[in-house]
Simulated scan of single mutants.
Amino acid sequence: MDRAPGLSVRLKLTLSYAGFLMLAGILLIVTVGLYLSLQGELFNEAGAVQATPGTMFLKAFAPTAAATMAFLLVFGVLGGWILAGRMLAPLNRITDATRTAATGSLSHRIRLPGRKDEFRELADTFDAMLARLEAHVAEQRRFAANASHELRTPLAISKSLLDVARTDPHHDTGRLIDRLHTVNTRAIDLTEALLLVSRAEQRSFTRQRVDLSLMAEEATETLLPLAEKHGVTIETRGDITPTTGSQALLLQLTTNLVHNAIVHNLPEQGTVWITTEVRPGTVVLTVENTGDHLTPELVPTLTEPFQRGTERIHTDHAGVGLGLAIVKTITQAHDGTLTLTPRPTGGLRVTVELPAQNPRPDSI
């Protein structure tokens, strides 16, 4: 925003300090003068002397008063300038850090020393904001690099298959078409997943009443054939859990969790438990499964894009590496929290906690 030039805050504070000091001095001198004049008049009324001692004292006091006012003016300006500079020094550091951040450097921190006050609270808040921005930018850069790599792989495979078909006219065309279909399907799935992540991050969806228990039932019915193929049993239980958000996104969240629990499970006789419950102010969806033992160090990385927790990533249902990353993004877009915990006996427990539906319809 273009603004007209004006006085600096330091100069405004200096003039304010000096003006207040001058006003206090004037009031003090006027008060003293009035008091002396009143004393002189009372002395004359008593008939002690004919002259007016108060008036004579005021004439003698006037030069001293003028000199005092001049001193107060100079002292107020100089003292106010120094005092305003000391008071505004933290604000100057905050301004410098803001300019540095505006150039794209997010690693700079103010780290303002001293006891807590308004300026230091502002500096700490700004440092926290820079830390979040730096982490977000780094995450986006990693995401872009990983997405580019994941998209490049199917395109490179498609190019290689087409080059082989062009140089070898006797190549099996049916097999080539099947390979191209598989590769292109994976590229399409990855692209749709990336678009879903972008949509959730932008929160460009209409909020409506959603029951997480119904989402769990629908996801279970959809993925039941996959569970039977993998020999996995799905158990669902819980309460009606109303929240507000995008029905499509929350269904995608639930489907991703159930799909992940089925695929990354025991080779035989695995189990998936899906539970919904209501807590004070929130609703909770929990999906846990049997499976391989996961270390506490590995679990936090599972929500990063293109990270997979086990070696079973080459199956037909391995996905594109964005399952839990999409769950995390959708959860954050709905102002919820996502918690991943390794089960002591193997497998993973994933808990999604979302705000409960506001009982007031007009607030949705």
Rank of each mutant, 00 (worst) to 15 (best):
T153G: 09
E192Y: 00
A193E: 05
V197H: 03
D189E: 07
L190F: 04
A165D: 02
H170D: 14
A147E: 06
R141E: 12
P154E: 08
H149T: 13
K159P: 00
R152T: 01
R166F: 01
N146E: 11
L180H: 03
T185E: 04
L162C: 05
N184H: 06
A147W: 05
S158C: 12
R175A: 13
R166W: 01
D172K: 07
T185S: 08
H170A: 14
V164L: 08
T173H: 09
L194Y: 02
H170I: 01
E192H: 08
H181S: 14
A187E: 04
H171P: 03
T167G: 05
N184I: 14
A165W: 06
A200E: 00
G174Q: 13
S160P: 01
N146L: 10
I188E: 09
L194E: 13
L161T: 10
L194C: 06
A200W: 00
R166G: 02
L162S: 07
I177N: 14
N146G: 13
D178C: 00
L161N: 10
D163Q: 14
H171R: 15
T167F: 04
N184V: 12
L190V: 02
G174R: 14
V197L: 03
L155Q: 10
Q140Y: 00
L194F: 01
T167V: 09
L190H: 07
S160K: 11
N146C: 03
E150Q: 09
A147H: 11
D172M: 04
R175L: 10
V197A: 03
T153R: 15
I177G: 06
R199Y: 00
A200T: 00
I177H: 14
T182D: 11
T182M: 12
A200P: 02
L195N: 11
R179D: 07
L190C: 05
K159D: 03
T173S: 08
T185W: 00
H181K: 15
L155R: 09
L195C: 01
P154Y: 06
D178S: 06
